[in-house]
């Protein structure tokens, strides 16, 4: 049975963190609240205090700098969806948000909330992993930065400390040109991914691949990387890139996943699709960078 809880509406990060410290585990930060409402209604969390942080200023912006793109934790999915024009990588993220929940929930749901929910099947998480993004965690002693891939510690579990709050996501912009792609298999147009994958490929001015990152979702307790697959393409030219290499990268990625079978899909299917989706996302990146596979 769902419990009753108190609602606090702090105006600053410091106040929010102080409330969290005072009330401890039964207090939850509440942003868009779309996941929290469900968890509470299904009695899946202990909840005595909701700390509604939507009144905290300054966390609802997307900043595009030379070195990095910064996305405030309170940026809604709808805002991210509408930021496509501002940067090539934001275009990719915008396309991802269009697959998430429904338009009328995207107006509420926030990027920070989505990341803190730490679903292994989340749509944004593998893209953030593939973009080498970091979580910005603000505590009483200041900020610390943690790679997204390390931020997730298990299904619905994160490395966030009791005295910390996620305040943003930072995507570094490496030198050269980077393209990213995300693909998933879903049942109907509105769904949780049965399996997903994201890749980013960075090339230098000569068209040689300098960085490849792959994030794999719904195939393990956390978002997984595929280091062997990533290495496969390093140093190769995107012009006349052998298709075989992409297929091999897919197969290597499929070798690292640890999927489970559940009501949505079997482990076998997820493994099979990792192979396909990794190849397709790499293919997308090569195409976006103006390269060709042969």
């Amino acid at each position: 049975m769902k419990s009753h809880f108190e609602v606090f509406q702090p105006a600053t990060i410091a106040q929010a963190i102080a409330l969290k410290q005072r009330h401890g585990k039964t207090a939850r930060f509440w942003a868009g609240g779309t996941d929290m409402t469900l968890l509470w209604q299904r009695s899946l969390i202990d909840l005595d205090q909701s700390i509604d942080i939507t009144g905290v200023g300054g966390l609802d912006r997307i900043k595009v700098g030379k070195q990095a793109i910064e996305i405030g934790a309170l940026v809604t999915l709808a805002q991210l969806e509408r930021a496509a024009e501002r940067h090539g990588l934001l275009k990719t993220l915008s396309d991802v948000t269009k697959l998430m929940c429904t338009p009328q929930t995207r107006t509420l749901a926030t990027v920070g909330g989505n990341i803190c929910n730490a679903s292994p099947a989340a749509d944004l998480s593998p893209v953030f992993v593939a973009l080498d993004a970091s979580a910005v965690l603000t505590g009483t002693g200041g900020d610390r930065s943690l790679k997204i891939v390390d931020f997730f510690t298990g299904p619905k579990r994160t490395a966030i400390k009791a005295s910390e709050m996620l305040t943003g996501i930072k995507i570094p912009l490496p030198s050269g040109t980077t393209a990213a792609s995300y693909r998933r298999v879903a049942r109907t147009v509105v769904d949780i991914a049965l399996v997903n994958a994201s890749s980013s490929v960075t090339v230098n001015a000569k068209g040689a691949i300098t960085r490849v990152l792959i994030g794999l979702g719904a195939v393990g307790p956390v978002i997984l990387r595929a280091p062997e697959a990533e290495k496969q393409l390093l140093g190769k030219s995107i012009n006349e890139l052998p298709r075989r290499l992409l297929e091999e990268a897919g197969a290597q990625a499929a070798a690292v996943v640890q999927p489970i079978s559940d009501v949505r899909a079997s482990a076998d299917y997820r493994r099979h699709m990792t192979k396909i989706l990794v190849r397709r996302t790499l293919d997308d990146c090569i195409a976006e960078l103006g390269g060709q596979t042969v």
């Binding site: 899909a265 299917y269 099979h272």
Partner: peptide
């Protein structure tokens, strides 16, 4: 005919 059943029917895994 879920995606998974289609793939199984095609003997892809």
């Amino acid at each position: 005919m879920t995606p998974e059943r289609v793939i199984r029917a095609l003997n892809h895994f």
